[in-house]
Amino acid sequence: MANFTWKGNPVTQIGRDLKVGEKAPEFNLLANDLSPVTLADSHGKVRLISVIPSIDTPVCDAQTRRFNEEASKLDNVEILTISADLPFAQKSWCAANGIGNVQTLSDHRDLLFGEAYGVAIQELRLLARAIFVVDKNDLVTYVEYINESTDHPNYEAALKAAKAVS
């Protein structure tokens, strides 16, 4: 189990850690227009899944901007940024910040993505920071659980992992 902390304080992880080689769990999230988005919708593409606690915080902002910049350099890789923020907040933040190369998705409704991917934080009803790469056949090929909510992921390793299976 990941040992998540929020600003240095331990929090409770809901779900179990995913492992490389496992089939990625299906999910049903909301796009910014409230339409449903599932893992199956992007079957046949490599998915870099960037999980953040809240899009309007400094590290989440930087993480989303970084992957937005890198998206245009990746062939056949779809970048999904997932948080428990409301879809309206995600849409507004993306519009205000010129973010258009990543798809922001919301798990606010029931945190089922968070539970399936082991990133739901019980005390806060937010998602812990993590990165997953899922290949064209829906297999998990890269996992990084970031234990401290204020730490950045290893961007280079995640991008390398996505390129390796694209």
Rank of each mutant, 00 (worst) to 15 (best):
Y145M: 05
K91M: 09
E69N: 15
P58S: 13
L126V: 06
V46S: 09
K7A: 02
L18K: 11
A24F: 04
D135E: 06
A164R: 09
K23H: 11
L34P: 15
N28E: 14
E26N: 14
K73A: 11
Q103F: 00
T81A: 15
P10E: 00
G100I: 01
E123I: 13
D151P: 00
R109N: 12
L86M: 13
S92M: 09
L34M: 12
N9A: 08
M1F: 04
M1K: 12
G21D: 08
R109T: 14
N147K: 03
C94W: 09
S35T: 15
F67V: 06
S83N: 06
I52F: 11
A157L: 10
T150M: 07
N28Y: 04
S149A: 10
A2P: 15
P53Q: 04
Y117S: 03
P25Q: 09
H108R: 05
N32P: 13
D107Q: 03
E156K: 13
P10K: 01
E78V: 13
S106R: 14
I49F: 01
H152F: 11
T141D: 08
V20M: 10
K163C: 01
L111P: 13
S92F: 12
G21F: 10
R109G: 00
D110Q: 07
L126N: 03
V46P: 07
K163H: 03
S42N: 12
F4K: 04
P10S: 01
Y155E: 01
V143N: 14
N154R: 04
C60M: 06
S35Q: 12
A24C: 07
C94A: 15
R66C: 03
N97Q: 07
T38H: 12
R66L: 07
M1W: 11
K73T: 14
T64P: 02
L126G: 05
V119N: 06
A89E: 09
K19W: 01
G118T: 06
L159E: 00
K163R: 15
M1V: 09
P10W: 00
V59L: 01
K73D: 13
S83L: 02
A158N: 12
T104L: 08
A95F: 09
E70R: 13
V165L: 00
L74R: 12
L124D: 00
K19T: 07
I121P: 00
L112D: 11
D135K: 11
W93Q: 05
A62P: 00
S35D: 10
E22W: 09
I14R: 10
P87N: 05
I82S: 07
G8M: 01
V133H: 15
S106P: 14
L112E: 11
S42K: 06
M1N: 06
W6S: 05
N76T: 04
K45E: 13
E144H: 12
T141F: 09
I146D: 04
